[in-house]
C-alpha cells in the first residue's frame, strides 16, 4: 500500500479515486500537502488533477450510487476534516457493493460518518446565511467578512445571488484567503488576500447604530438568558456581528 497525493481540490480528489479504481489499488493514506518528512519506506504516488477524468468519476458515482451521493461527497469534502479523503474513499468502495441502497446504511461505519460530516458543513452554511453582515462600501458595493469553520463559500453563494441579485457583493473568508463575489450576473470563487475593511459609505455608520439600538431593545429584560444566547451564538461568530461589536468610541 502507498500514500496517494493530490492537489487538494475536489476535482483532484475525484481524479485520484478514478486512478485508484483503474489500478485496483487501496491507499494507505490520502494527502494533499507535501509530506512533513520523506518516508524512506513508503512510496508516494502523486495524481495530477484532471477535469475530464474527475467529471467522468462524478457521473459514474451519480449512476452507480445516486446523484445525491455526489452532493453528499462534495459537502463532506468541504469540511477539510483531517482524513476526510480516506473516509470518502471508503464510502465509495462500500457504495460500489451496495449501489443505490448505499445511503440507507446510516448506521454503517462507512456511511454514517460521511453523512454526519456533510450535515455539519450544511449547518455551518445555513448558519452563515443568517449571520453574515454586509457593509456598504464607499464605492456602493457590499462587503462581508467571515471565518467559517468549513469551506462553505460555494454553498452560500447561490443563496445570496438569488436574494441580493441587485447588489454587487463580496463575501470574504479571511481564514482561507478566499472570497465569493457577485457582479449581478454570476458569482465566482477567487483568491482574496485584502486586509482590513474597505472604506465605508456615508450611511453605513448610521444604519449600524440603528441596528444596534434595535437589537438591544428587542430583548425582554425579565427573560434575560445569556447562556441560551451563548449557546446559539458562540464566540467565534461574535466578532463579525455588527450588533455585538463594541460601539465605536466617540
Amino acid at each position: 500500500m502507498a500514500i496517494w497525493r493530490y492537489d487538494g481540490s475536489f476535482t483532484g480528489f475525484l481524479t485520484l479515486c478514478a486512478a485508484l479504481l483503474s489500478q485496483g489499488e487501496e491507499p494507505e493514506e490520502i494527502i494533499s500537502a507535501e509530506p512533513l518528512q520523506n518516508d524512506l519506506f513508503r512510496t508516494i504516488i502523486s495524481v495530477a488533477s484532471d477535469e475530464n477524468r474527475g467529471e467522468k468519476m462524478l457521473a459514474a458515482i451519480a449512476s452507480r450510487i445516486s446523484p445525491d451521493s455526489c452532493r453528499l461527497l462534495w459537502q463532506a469534502f468541504l469540511s477539510e476534516a483531517p482524513g476526510v479523503e480516506l473516509l470518502l474513499w471508503r464510502y465509495l468502495s462500500f457504495g460500489r457493493t451496495t449501489g443505490v441502497k448505499c445511503d440507507r446504511f446510516l448506521a454503517h461505519p462507512a456511511v454514517g460518518p460521511v453523512h454526519r460530516l456533510a450535515n455539519s458543513v450544511g449547518q455551518e452554511a445555513h448558519r452563515l446565511m443568517g449571520i453574515i453582515r454586509f457593509q456598504e462600501t464607499a464605492g456602493g458595493q457590499w462587503y462581508a467578512l467571515v471565518e467559517p469553520a468549513y469551506q462553505v463559500l460555494e454553498l452560500i453563494a447561490p443563496h445570496f445571488a438569488a436574494r441580493c441579485s441587485d447588489m454587487n457583493w463580496l463575501i470574504h473568508d479571511r481564514r482561507r484567503s478566499l472570497a465569493v463575489a457577485w457582479n449581478k450576473q454570476e458569482w465566482r470563487l477567487t483568491r482574496f488576500d485584502a486586509q482590513g475593511v474597505p472604506p465605508l459609505s456615508a450611511d453605513e455608520k448610521a444604519w449600524s447604530t440603528i441596528w444596534r439600538g434595535y437589537f438591544a431593545a428587542i430583548a425582554i429584560p425579565e427573560r434575560a438568558n445569556l447562556r441560551l444566547q451563548q449557546q446559539h451564538l458562540p464566540h467565534r461568530f461574535r466578532k463579525y456581528l455588527t450588533e455585538l461589536e463594541k460601539p465605536p468610541r466617540r
Binding site: 446565511m129 436574494r163 441580493c164 438568558n225 445569556l226
Partner: peptide, 18 residues
C-alpha cells in the same frame, strides 16, 4: 430585492436567548 427561504433563517439571538 429579497426572497423567502422555506426553512427560515435566524440572523441573531438577543440577550433573552430568543
Amino acid at each position: 430585492i429579497g426572497n423567502a427561504a422555506a426553512s427560515g433563517i435566524c440572523h441573531s439571538w438577543s440577550a433573552d436567548g430568543r
